[in-house]
Simulated scan of single mutants.
Amino acid sequence: MKVPMIMTPGPTQVNENVRFSRATQTTNPDLDLQFYDFYKETCEKIGKMLKTKNEVRVLSGEGILGLEAACASLTEPGDRVLVIENGIFGEGFADFVKLYGGEPFFFRGDKKHKISIEELKNFLDIDSDFKYATVVHCDTPSGALNDINEICPLLKEKGILTVVDSVAAMGGEEIKVDDWKIDIAIGGSQKCISAPPGLTLLSISEDAFKAMENRKVPIASFYCNLLSWKNYYEDKWFPYTPPISDIVGLSTAIDNILKDDNILLRHDKIASATRAAVVYAGLSLYMKDGFSNTVTVVQVPHGIDDKKLREYMVQNYNVMIAGSFGYLEGRVLRIGHMGENAYPDKVSYTLFALQKALEHYGFKCEHDMCKTFLDNSPFVISEKA
């Protein structure tokens, strides 16, 4: 099988040292006490990345597991939960809330803009009687980046627990869990972290644990029960056998991030240059503001079939980008410049391939995207600086 260069907004490309780590000989993670230390050390490294002293756990399941586990562990029948949404994933939190007996209430933002702090404040001044609130850091289908540094402290002022989906942002956007009053921050291995799919990373505050412990009814799940993880180290007991090879690879991927002092600046500069290249070529961005540094979302030109365009890129240039889904299906293209994808050579080649595919289907770019990108990305780093 010929593997394309995956420039999608997750899964992303995986560094060779992460792949090699996953091939390391492993032990029995349930019985070998050394692994409990390794798991704890890995969680502490993730905590350093997240700027938190809260407890961190790694769960066996793609990032969606973390979203459901947060809702399963916090929601009791009849709980009022605020769902802050301006995109597909934000809205999707309501399904988990309802699944566990909660009652979701929406604060709906404009889907082409980041969440308005002023409008949210006005909303909360009228009604703030919610057990917890959910918000998406980066809504991957649209590329919306929300100001969780302002949203979460505002919620906590009202006594509302905060649950943040940072799956598509964690590792590529700044996140300060403690300073920003985030009770549960959720990430995934396959996006900016640049490890293979299959793991959820999350931090859990003491306030969140207390809410779980003070429930009137038990958590209606085993696999999604975050409370069962609270004392794993002291008890030397995991709720289920951890996927040890995946966790070894994840640990190496976290090391890569912590060693890269320029990682956030690199994401910022590459994202800005990508947007400049797209706009200067005569294409339109989907978002009007709140642009993510991990994914650029471009409107498909009139008359072009996005699936055929993307297939052409794979078949002729061996580059894979993504379309979207839901109300954005067929309407946008998504370039994932996150994690191991966020290097100038990879993004410039992706823009070259995109331009050639657009020209093949009759769209003439006003300016060369590859040249514009390179002209606008002065922060050029060596491949592995």
Rank of each mutant, 00 (worst) to 15 (best):
G63L: 03
Y39G: 00
S73L: 13
I46F: 12
A70N: 01
L65D: 06
E68M: 15
E55Y: 13
G90W: 01
G92V: 00
G102L: 05
K53D: 05
E55I: 13
F35K: 05
G102H: 03
Y39R: 01
V58S: 13
L74R: 10
F35Q: 06
G87Q: 04
V58Q: 09
E85A: 15
G109K: 13
E62P: 03
R57H: 11
G102N: 00
L31R: 09
K98G: 00
K98I: 01
V83R: 02
G63S: 10
E41G: 06
A69N: 14
A69D: 14
K48R: 10
A70D: 02
G63K: 05
D79A: 08
V97L: 11
G109A: 12
E44I: 06
E68N: 10
D37Q: 10
G78R: 14
Y39V: 00
V81N: 05
E68Y: 14
G66P: 01
Y39P: 01
Y36F: 15
P104G: 04
I64K: 15
V81M: 09
G66S: 12
T52F: 14
E103P: 00
L50R: 07
T52M: 15
K53Q: 08
N86W: 10
G61Q: 15
G90C: 02
G66W: 14
T42E: 01
D32E: 05
S73A: 12
V56M: 13
D32S: 07
F106V: 01
G101L: 03
A69I: 15
L67V: 15
L65R: 15
A94L: 02
G47R: 03
G66E: 09
E41S: 14
G66A: 13
F35W: 12
Y100I: 06
L99N: 07
E76Y: 10
E76W: 11
E41V: 08
V83Q: 02
F35S: 07
R80D: 04
D79E: 13
L67N: 06
F35C: 06
A69L: 15
I64A: 15
F106I: 00
G63N: 00
L65W: 15
E85C: 14
E85L: 14
C43Q: 06
F105N: 03
T52V: 10
G102R: 02
G90A: 02
G47I: 04
K48P: 05
E55F: 13
A69G: 14
S73G: 14
E103R: 08
L31T: 12
R108H: 09
F38E: 00
R57C: 11
L99H: 10
V56L: 12
V56S: 07
E62V: 14
L50F: 12
